[in-house]
């Protein structure tokens, strides 16, 4: 591994880039949601409040950290960085400039599935470690919700892989050049993926594990200061990660028309393609989550098991037959 690769992983287009993208995403989320609800949204920090998520993050890190008396201190204090690591590692498999990701292997998607599961596992561990009543109820809901959305999410991720005949994300992106986007090949899979990612992200209508009017902040209730800052940042990062995954798997990610022969310019154009697609997916998720009310856990499980799982199985069957 040479120095350039380290810079790529840590700075651009790796971790730092995605963290800043996560901040921008959070700002966009707050701003668009506010406008749809007739409000202004953040307006003070930076131009039009764009630095508000950054300010929130640094403010949280400087606050007093309160550790509950009966909590599992080791997991409670050291868990958040691991929780953060899950989507952070996931992002390096996604091509951002050029058609190849920083790290690419033939088994990318398997690792992505592990990352998604690990993220939920860490959330569960953090909730249990904090030993609150709200957290305990929330973890019950989280695990049940994960059990219901994992199968549709997995099948929805697998369908573009089958269509491309490749398990590597870079491979899937390359298979979608010339506007051969998989959203046209596996439209049901795309819809199922978006709905399942709402559940993974704990956004309405599936914000059941952190339903604030029922169980306060759910498994995050006992967190404060630095751990909370990490947890919040991880939520935004997962947001970007899943949008980027959807953009790469279904909308062609960085793939698009080649405009110049100059490598560095063309890389910039690839980055622009990628960002446009990611933000498009992001806006779709913002709109869906703003327009819906929270369902109950049994209703969510019902929806995933009786509607989305058969749909994603059907999609997989169709895509296998088509190949």
């Amino acid at each position: 591994m040479d120095a350039l690769e380290v810079v790529e992983i840590l700075v651009f287009p790796g971790l730092t880039f995605f963290v800043w993208l996560a901040f921008v995403f959070e700002w966009l989320d707050r701003k668009t949601t506010a406008r749809m609800q007739g409000r202004i949204g953040p307006m003070l920090a930076g131009p039009r409040g764009i630095l508000q998520p950054v300010a929130d993050f640094f403010k949280l890190t400087s606050k007093e950290e309160i550790v509950p008396q009966f909590s599992d201190k080791l997991v409670f204090e050291w868990g958040p960085p691991f929780f953060f690591a899950a989507p952070a590692i996931g992002t390096i498999f996604i091509p951002v400039v050029g058609l190849n990701a920083i790290v690419s292997s033939p088994y990318d998607l398997l690792f992505i599935l592990f990352v998604l599961a690990f993220s939920t596992l860490m959330a569960g561990m953090l909730g249990y470690a904090s030993a609150g009543r709200f957290s305990t109820i929330s973890i019950g809901r989280l695990v049940l919700q994960y059990a219901s959305f994992e199968i549709p999410l997995l099948l929805a991720i697998v369908s573009p892989a089958v269509a491309a005949g490749n398990l590597s994300i870079s491979g899937i992106v390359q298979a979608q050049s010339n506007f051969h986007w998989f959203v046209f090949v596996v439209p049901i899979g795309f819809a199922v993926f978006i709905v399942s990612s709402l559940a993974e992200l704990e956004k309405p209508p599936f914000d059941i594990p952190d339903a604030k009017t029922e169980i306060a902040a759910g498994w995050m209730t006992e967190f404060s200061a630095r751990p909370l800052a990490y947890v919040k940042l991880t939520e935004s990062l997962s947001y970007v990660f899943l949008s980027a995954l959807a953009a790469s798997l279904f909308l062609g990610g960085t793939a698009g028309p080649v405009l110049t022969n100059v490598t560095i310019l063309q890389d910039g154009i690839y980055l622009a393609y990628f960002l446009i697609k990611v933000f498009a997916i992001g806006f779709a998720i913002f709109a869906i989550k703003t327009a819906l009310a929270r369902v109950r856990i049994n209703q969510a499980a019902n929806l995933f098991w009786t509607v989305l799982t058969p749909l994603s199985l059907l999609q997989l069957g169709i895509v296998i037959l088509l190949r």
């Binding site: 668009t32 749809m36 609800q37 409000r39 709109a287 703003t290």
Partner: peptide, 21 residues
């Protein structure tokens, strides 16, 4: 229907916000 509020949402997004600064 699911998402019955979407139309009104986009209409609101392009109206003046109610917030008084």
């Amino acid at each position: 229907k699911v998402g019955g509020a979407l139309g009104e949402m986009f209409r609101t997004a392009f109206q003046r916000p109610i917030t008084k600064k």
